[in-house]
Amino acid sequence: MLNIATDTFAARGYNNASLAEIADRAGLTQAGVLHYFRSKSLLLTSVLERRDQGDIEQLGPERPRGLAFLRHLVDTALRNAEREGLVRLYAVLSAESVTEDHPAQAYFRDRYTGLRAFVTDALTEACGLPDPDAPRTRDAANAIIAVMDGLQVQWLLDPDAVAMAASTDLVIRSLLSTLAPDRFSN
């Protein structure tokens, strides 16, 4: 049922997806869906958590640090080119979550906060910087995340014109050479 909900939310967004459609495609009644997931918003949360769980499992028992984490971001962009449904789900729901009272708003806010911290830490470690709270390092982390998210939207619209992993790698390398030119020169 989570695969069907993932496909439906990715195609229609949360607000336009109906429990009736998800139930029908799963061979259940709406009451059957609600038996497993007490509400449409809980179903959405379960779909998002499942998406994250797959990415967490890819990392293995311990999150990579420094350059290894930045390499992981490039590898994630490469993997994303093979999972259009999950990329579409993320792009649609993250954009939709900025609307008032969206059930995934807290999820995406927390996700960006955590991801920003991981990327900032990775940049700080890779560059040997003394202060992870330096505005420039935080700005670089925000730029990496923004590029990755923006590339996903572009790729969904024109996959042959966008190489997500190559573009992500270029931006990360450029930012590393800007933050620590003595360590990373082009």
Results as ranks from 00 to 15, higher is better:
D121H: 09
E84N: 02
A81Q: 14
A104Y: 01
R65I: 10
D75T: 10
L70H: 08
H102P: 04
R138M: 09
T113D: 11
R38C: 00
Y36M: 08
G66W: 00
A122L: 04
A95Q: 13
Q58P: 00
D55E: 07
G114N: 15
T113G: 04
T76E: 08
Y107Q: 07
H72Q: 15
T99H: 12
E82S: 15
H72V: 01
L48N: 02
Y36V: 03
T113L: 10
F69T: 05
Y112C: 01
L42A: 09
R116Y: 02
G114W: 10
A143T: 15
I144D: 06
G66V: 01
R138E: 12
I144S: 08
S46G: 13
P64F: 06
Y36W: 09
F69H: 13
D121W: 02
R71A: 13
D101P: 01
D110Q: 13
G54K: 14
V74W: 03
P130H: 07
L42P: 00
E125I: 10
R88E: 05
D52S: 11
I56R: 09
R111T: 13
D121A: 13
F69R: 10
R109N: 14
V33W: 03
V119F: 04
L34V: 05
R138K: 13
L123Q: 08
D101S: 13
A140Q: 11
S97E: 03
H102F: 10
G60H: 02
I56H: 01
F37A: 07
D133V: 02
A117C: 06
P130R: 09
T99Y: 10
R116N: 11
D131A: 09
A95I: 04
T137M: 06
R63V: 14
T124L: 07
R38G: 12
P64M: 06
D55A: 04
V87I: 08
R50L: 13
D52H: 09
L78N: 11
L43E: 07
R109F: 12
T99C: 05
D110V: 02
A106C: 00
H72E: 14
H35K: 12
R51E: 08
T124I: 08
A106R: 10
A117S: 14
S97Y: 01
